[in-house]
């Protein structure tokens, strides 16, 4: 009597969810035809935050790399757009992937330094490096020094001649980045590298003992996250049209918000950043006028979630209902074969 094994990851809810998701994506892709200008701008912000949250979740939730310095790569990506668009005369849209490459390139020496620090000290080390980038860009007078610079109109017109066309292209880039970042994490987790990452997340020594090269896996994840974060940086400042060191390397805008989104939604789950992003923008719609109070509420909420439900809001739902939208758990199905 032989048993046949199959390994599956899909569940019934994930298949149904997948269909809903595809319909939703098709609707979003048609956004320029049914969304207003203001809504499109908001959508660009939402897409950027979701992509950043996916990357931070990949670092902290899976690779155990708690970075408080992702603003380094966002700012580098933003400045790469300005350098490429103004000094190299490139089309701003072409600058987006190049900005990702530039950020990934800078991530290599950065990793060489910060990877010398372990666990919690890694977090502050990444922060120091981000400050170094910020202070350095403030010294470059060709890039406007501390006060920054604007993207000239003729460079902006390189995207598309009319404002409507520009808005649509930027919107599609944001959508592509958000979907791409989510897809990247999902795709990665379904490969053997993903299995390795999940093992590292659950127990570092155990992962090492079954032959996983923790250091190498982490390094790859760090560089990949820098690449995506750099692209988001270019997109963010393409829609803002103005950059300064303070805005480009802001720890609050590009790391604190992102950390709160992931923690509230659920660390170590692909759905977490999506849920967290929704909560973040809903809260902002109600509380943004209150300024500092908004950040106090967000901070307290994140602390409360971390203490009371460290698996996050999505974790609570998933554990109760057993649903997974992006199934990455392998389940073994054993079929008994009839004796011939």
């Amino acid at each position: 009597m032989a048993n046949r094994f199959t390994v599956v990851t899909a569940t019934r809810t994930s298949r149904a969810g997948g269909v809903v998701l595809l319909v939703l994506l098709a609707g979003l892709a048609a956004g320029p035809w049914w969304l207003g200008r203001g809504d499109m701008r908001l959508a660009v912000e939402i897409g950027s935050m979701l992509a950043l949250a996916q990357m931070w979740n990949l670092l902290a939730g899976y690779a155990g790399l708690v970075s408080v310095g992702q603003q380094a790569f966002l700012g580098l990506g933003g400045y790469a757009l300005f350098v490429g668009g103004i000094f190299l005369g490139l089309n701003p849209l072409v600058c987006i992937p190049l900005a990702g490459l530039a950020a990934a390139l800078f991530a290599i020496p950065t990793a060489a330094l910060v990877f010398r620090l372990r666990a919690a000290y890694f977090a502050i080390g990444t922060w120091v490096v981000a400050e170094v980038y910020m202070l350095s860009f403030a010294q470059v007078s060709a890039l406007g020094g501390g006060s920054g610079m604007s993207l000239p109109a003729d460079v902006v017109r390189g995207i598309a001649e009319d404002a409507g066309g520009r808005d649509a292209l930027i919107y599609w880039c944001a959508l592509a980045l958000a979907v791409g970042a989510t897809g990247l994490v999902y795709g990665l987790l379904r490969t053997r590298h993903g299995l390795a990452l999940t093992a590292i997340r659950d127990s570092e020594p155990a992962a090492e003992s079954v032959g996983i090269d923790n250091a190498r896996t982490r390094w790859l994840v760090y560089i990949a996250a820098a690449f995506v974060t750099g692209m988001v940086g270019a997109l963010v400042f393409l829609s803002k049209l103005r950059i300064s060191p303070d805005a480009a390397f802001s720890v609050v805008d590009w790391t604190a918000y992102v950390i709160f989104i992931v923690v509230i939604g659920g660390v170590g789950r692909i759905e977490g950043p999506i849920v967290g992003t929704i909560v973040f923008f809903v809260l902002r719609a109600f509380l943004a006028d209150l300024g500092a109070i908004y950040l106090i509420v967000l901070g307290l909420l994140a602390v409360a979630v971390m203490l009371a439900a460290p698996q996050g809001l999505w974790g609570l739902v998933a554990e109760r209902a057993g649903v997974e939208l992006f199934p990455v758990r392998r389940r073994l199905i054993v079929e008994k074969e009839q004796q011939a």
Partner: peptide, 18 residues
């Protein structure tokens, strides 16, 4: 390592804004 880092980071933002 996540809970102490994230709780103290949240605390940092809360203290600043208070």
């Amino acid at each position: 390592i996540l809970p102490p880092l994230l709780v103290t980071f949240g605390l940092s933002i809360v203290i600043q804004n208070v």
